[in-house]
Design a protein around this nucleic acid. Structure first.
Lengths: 374, 374
DNA sequence: TTCGCGACTGACAGCGCTGTCCGAGGTGGC
DNA sequence: GCCACCTCGGACAGCGCTGTCAGTCGCGAA
């Protein structure tokens, strides 16, 4: 059935043979003869098991032996086969990334961070989109883990807050790390950043520019990170002794449209416009920007506008958006590392805090008519 | 070392046991006792091999037997283990997706399409970012294939046009499908859409709105799809008997910045502005939009602006961008299907053509002062 | 009735690797 | 100088599944 699968000949492992079949229409199977662990063992003059020990960094291998084995492996370009390892040992060398549907830019960042960490450790990333809700999730998770047995799972928000999902993972006894979870911090290791502090700093930055009448557009009520951003804004205003006027804190849904609507409420009346608007995420900031364009309010001359996330779109508008860069990729990398090392956060907490960064671009400036910044 | 790995007890497969170890700091290993193929065989009263036959849809299984096995499998929630299958049979049930660095939105779409196709077929998607160039690629591809042995590889543009990469894949005899390749169409199956036709139709749409002085911003010279878009534009203008004035075809790099620059050249002189600009991709269209905003040119009243790609940002600006939707996800799904079925495109060609779609949004309208459309 | 053939099923041997267990040396203490 | 102990290396049995091959059964043809 499979053409070109040499039977006895396949034993002559060392040589690299290219399959010669060119059967029309049939995709070539990858039946290049492989170098196996006992090729390495033979070349190094040791037993298979010793090679395995070197590979797995087990103790009790003489340095000289270790080096000989490593040299042999390098010479043959030997790489252990993941399936065989998974089958024999407990580990699959696969890390799964689950996501539902946050912005593609966000997921992309997460993916890259996780992938980098995996690559460093000889693991691989396998991506799963979890769309269905409710009971279906349990089944598909159970099935996935029975099939693949990933060494660990990375959960992105808002997925990482769904209780059925966590329950399903617990049921198959999977190791998982959550990124920026909103609750149940005791349930698993997690990685996060300080949203409150970031919002606080951004607000302080606006104040340092000379703004006193600053509006904030928050996110969904059930979104803990969003709440903490609002908190940071309020705290910073209070700390500076600045009043937050009525209607100066709007609620949005983290969408362009909701940002637009909040922007209209804030900017409609020329008499009551704030000099700066701090949107709880970039998408909403872009909504505000669209309103401003329509009303011929020039940014940053007439209005300072800042966002949060540093999404790709933030650089693809004019003026480019001042925003907060989340350490998204790093968070994913740390999460992957935790899973690969099979150790929860090294010391004290199970949560790992990473740093954000203010990204000052062109959409922010001193308020109109202000002299130098305070 | 591994706690809780019952030795003899592990044979009592049917029951689901949750590991009880709660060793502090140590992530739980997934050592839930598994239901294996011989549990199913026992329950169905057949041999392991027969279960395997049913699983793999092999012929020569009596219908009644098949049903009994399927019932048993369903009752036990049995799912075959991928690693074991990979080790024993030739197939890994893993499809790899290689990408370098196109826009995250694009990759996200590709991923989703490929993932959906994989899921339908009981496969999984494993994502690899190929950053390094040159010789490094060869090694890392060889290593990856030795480790993972994916059943097939999906190559996205512009990756799919790199000869060293194709050579490396050929060397390990991997099956791959390319998405929108620019050259070497005979080297592998591929999936694509008709960029020329899409650009032609978009141009015709602009003409139908009443535009006669239309400018086009093309892409990089070596980008075949870009060239075909330019071609479609030119052909449509010629077909309508419309002249393309000097400087009306600009070249960009598919980036926001290059769109901006082209936009400045096109819009700087109020006397010589086109009534419509067709940008070769959305990012460049957004660059033009930024220039227009700055110059207080109102879209679509003073200028019609359209893009190509339907990237996520296209909806996150105001006015929302009229553009061409590429069947990105479908292309990836088709690519995955080809690899899973292990058959090149069914009949005639190795290339599979998919349909695009014009997405009319708010950035396009009749030229200023025009009455009804022609 | 016997033969032959196609339909169907099962025993068996691995795939490439790791965990377990055991045994051979070497080392140091008394 | 002997034994206990530590250090290191190898034999062996699978992990869970599939390919191969050798059957067994039933049924129409000879």
């Amino acid at each position: 059935m499979e053409p070109g699968r040499g039977d006895g000949a396949a034993k002559l492992s060392c040589e690299i043979g290219y399959a010669t079949d060119k059967e029309d229409g049939l995709l070539r199977a990858s039946d290049v003869s492989t170098v196996t662990i006992d090729d390495v063992a033979r070349l190094a003059g040791v037993s298979i098991k010793t090679v395995s020990r070197v590979l797995n960094r087990e103790p009790y291998v003489r340095d000289s032996t270790r080096e000989r084995v490593e040299a042999a492996a390098a010479q043959l370009d030997y790489t252990p086969n993941v399936s065989a390892r998974a089958l024999a040992g407990g580990r699959s060398y696969l890390i799964a990334l689950y996501y539902d549907n946050p912005s593609p830019g966000y997921v992309g960042q997460i993916e890259q961070g996780a992938m980098a960490a995996c690559r460093r450790a000889g693991h691989h990333l396998i991506v799963e989109e979890m769309l269905e809700m409710g009971a279906g999730v349990q089944d598909s998770i159970a099935a996935f883990h029975a099939r693949v047995r990933p060494d660990g799972v990375i959960l992105t928000p808002p997925l990482c807050d769904r209780p059925e999902l966590l329950a399903a993972l617990d049921a198959v006894n999977a190791a998982y790390v959550r990124i920026a979870p909103s609750w149940g911090l005791e349930r698993s290791p997690y990685v996060y950043m300080d949203d409150r502090e970031a919002a606080y700093e951004m607000t302080a930055y606006l104040q340092s520019l000379g703004h006193r009448d600053i509006a904030f557009i928050g996110g969904p009520l059930d979104h803990v990170a969003a709440a903490r951003r609002t908190e940071g804004f309020s705290d910073a205003m209070a700390a500076a002794g600045l009043a937050v006027g009525p209607g100066r804190i709007q609620r949005g849904e983290f969408s362009f449209r909701s940002g637009w609507e909040a922007g209209e409420r804030l900017l409609q009346d020329p008499q009551r416009r704030p000099t700066a608007i701090f949107a709880g995420n970039d998408d909403m900031a872009l909504g505000v920007m669209a309103v401003a364009n329509r009303l011929h309010i020039e940014i940053p001359r007439d209005l300072t506008l800042v966002g949060f996330d540093d999404s790709p779109s933030a650089q693809v508008v004019w003026p480019q958006l001042t925003t907060v860069r989340q350490p998204t990729a790093e968070m994913a990398a740390v999460a992957a590392d935790i899973l690969i090392k099979r150790k929860a956060a090294d010391k004290d907490a199970r949560g790992r805090l990473l740093d954000f960064k203010l990204v000052i671009r062109e959409s922010s400036g001193p308020p109109r008519g202000a002299g130098a910044a305070s």
